[in-house]
Simulated assay, not measured.
Amino acid sequence: MKDKTIDYILRATWQAVARMYNEEASKYDASMATGFALLSIDKEGGTPSTSLGPKMGMEATSLTRTLKSMEEKGLIIRKKNPVDGRGVLIYLTDFGKEKRELSKNTVLKFNETVKQTISAEKLQHFIEVAETINELIQDKNIFTHTSVSELAEQTEKTENDTTKIDSHQ
């Protein structure tokens, strides 16, 4: 992936992972979003619908569609929150718990395959890099104090550094 930007690599990799999960999930009349929701709902105590979206990083409209589909398939039931009557708790049905195990095993299989292929050290570096990128974004440290000319200077410096590294190899 030479000369590809970091965001391109992240996006392309995530799209490949999502496609892989969706292909696997389609064998069971499901989707990656359904599997992720199954794994995000507390198996015994249920989960408030309002906390599910942020937990999954999904927009409300997408989550609503996913939950409606899951309810139609008998994977979940919705009940009024006994503590806050305005809220709704999402519970897994017995069928939902079965499918949750299937989703869990699918994720574990992916993780195990990656761990068998990539060294623990490289995986640790990957995790550290991903966490740092997330922190930079959450702390709004990407664009806040950088002008276009500073970005151009940084790009030129990076290109010069890359040229130096390439010439030593």
Rank of each mutant, 00 (worst) to 15 (best):
E153R: 09
P54D: 12
Q124K: 09
A18N: 11
D166R: 11
T5D: 14
F95S: 11
K73V: 11
V88D: 01
R100I: 03
E112G: 11
V17T: 15
K73W: 08
T113N: 08
T163R: 14
A60G: 11
A130D: 09
T113D: 14
W14Q: 06
G53L: 03
S40R: 14
G74K: 01
D7E: 09
E98K: 08
V114D: 04
I133N: 06
S31A: 03
I165A: 05
I6H: 00
K80M: 12
S119H: 01
E128P: 07
V148W: 00
T13G: 10
F143Y: 13
E128Y: 14
I137Q: 15
D3H: 15
Q124N: 10
D161L: 12
D29H: 06
S62E: 05
A152F: 14
K4E: 10
K4A: 12
R100C: 03
E59P: 03
M70R: 01
E159K: 07
K79M: 12
F110A: 07
A12V: 14
I76A: 01
N160K: 15
A120N: 04
T47Q: 09
D139S: 15
G87N: 05
L89N: 02
E159I: 01
E112Y: 08
K55D: 10
E121T: 11
L10R: 09
V129W: 07
E153F: 10
T146R: 11
K109Q: 15
L123D: 04
F110R: 02
R78E: 01
F110T: 01
H168S: 14
L38G: 03
S103F: 15
L75H: 00
G85L: 15
K73H: 07
I77T: 14
M1I: 02
I142F: 05
S49D: 02
G53E: 13
Q154D: 05
F110P: 00
E112Q: 14
K80Y: 15
K27S: 09
M58G: 04
T106Q: 09
Y91W: 01
V83W: 11
G57I: 03
V17I: 15
Q124R: 14
K104P: 02
L75S: 01
I41F: 06
T144C: 11
Q154V: 02
H168L: 15
N105C: 03
L38R: 07
E156R: 13
A12H: 07
D84T: 00
M58T: 03
I137Y: 06
G45W: 02
M20N: 05
E24W: 07
D139L: 13
I9P: 10
V83Q: 06
